[in-house]
């Protein structure tokens, strides 16, 4: 290496101005998109998951629960949509956990940037991923005979509600991503939380068919509210109270888990 050519770029006389929080977050989002380009398998969860889930549950339960798969599809699609997107929120935590393990996280934390940008950027790209999953599932649903009574607008509104809730739910995984030490343990914990949360809800069956004690849990499960609201929006009945509850829950999740995440982020040892 020639010293002359080496030394020239070493010292910059001018420093650029500090970047804005929005720019920092967008830059992190750009990084996440670049990574998808290198590892397209990362999209497996948002492409294959929805297809498998929809086909599997429609044809597995359809006959038994509704007497016909066609009718069941109309009932179950909004539910599976919520379930799938809620489940893939956990990958947010897994990605973050990997960054920490690899050491990139330490570089980010030592940069003079608005620190939450690391997480906000990742979550922005996740919202894109959730939208992709939703689009795939709804398209497949239409091919299989699904019809939304409230039309296309209803579907869009339902997806927006799901995206908002999922974004809020993601903050639970960011905490776990920071504090849990191995990817395997994180996966196990996430599954342990997500399976009961998604299955013990109104995703697959009408809660009135369940035993009383279970109904009580299902009725307070946030997933149930999101599923009911999506169903209502898609099939055209009034779900104002559900929407209000979801707004409270989501803002609550962001306030509590967002704050905790930032606390752990700053004090990570």
């Amino acid at each position: 290496m020639e010293n002359n050519s080496l030394e020239k770029p070493l010292i910059l006389e001018e420093r650029p101005p500090k970047t804005t929080p929005v720019n920092a977050a967008l830059t992190f989002a750009w990084r996440a998109l670049l990574r998808i380009r290198y590892i397209p398998e990362q999209l497996f969860d948002v492409t294959a998951f929805p297809i498998i889930f929809l086909l599997m549950f429609t044809y597995l339960f359809g006959g038994a629960i509704s007497g016909s798969t066609g009718e069941y599809l109309n009932f179950v699609l909004p539910g599976i949509l919520v379930m799938t997107v809620s489940m893939i929120t956990m990958y947010t935590g897994l990605d973050l956990n990997k960054d920490i393990e690899k050491g990139v996280f330490d570089r980010f934390r030592s940069l003079p940037i608005w620190q939450p940008a690391v997480l906000v950027g990742a979550l922005l790209v996740d919202v894109v991923r959730y939208s992709l999953a939703s689009t795939i599932m709804i398209t497949l649903g239409y091919i299989l005979g699904f019809r939304a009574e409230a039309g296309f607008i209803g579907v869009i509104l339902a997806v927006l509600v799901i995206l908002f809730f999922s974004f809020s739910l993601s903050w639970v995984w960011t905490i776990l991503g920071i504090i849990v030490r191995s990817e395997k343990a994180l996966m196990a914990i996430s599954m342990m939380l997500l399976f009961p949360l998604t299955f013990l809800s109104s995703v697959f069956v009408d809660p009135s068919t369940m035993p009383n004690w279970l109904q009580r849990f299902v009725e307070i499960n946030p997933i149930t509210f999101v599923v009911d609201a999506s169903r209502g929006l898609i099939h055209g009945y009034d779900v104002t109270s559900e929407l209000l509850t979801i707004t409270y829950i989501s803002l609550g999740l962001i306030a509590v888990f967002g704050t905790l995440t930032m606390y752990f982020f700053r004090n990570k040892e």
């Binding site: 990084r31 990574r35 990139v104 330490d106 570089r107």
Partner: peptide, 16 residues
């Protein structure tokens, strides 16, 4: 703003 670090811990993104 005045420091930077390199080493076993502060690293780069291997996938990029």
């Amino acid at each position: 703003r005045s420091i930077s670090l390199t080493g076993q811990f502060a690293s780069v993104d291997e996938e990029l």
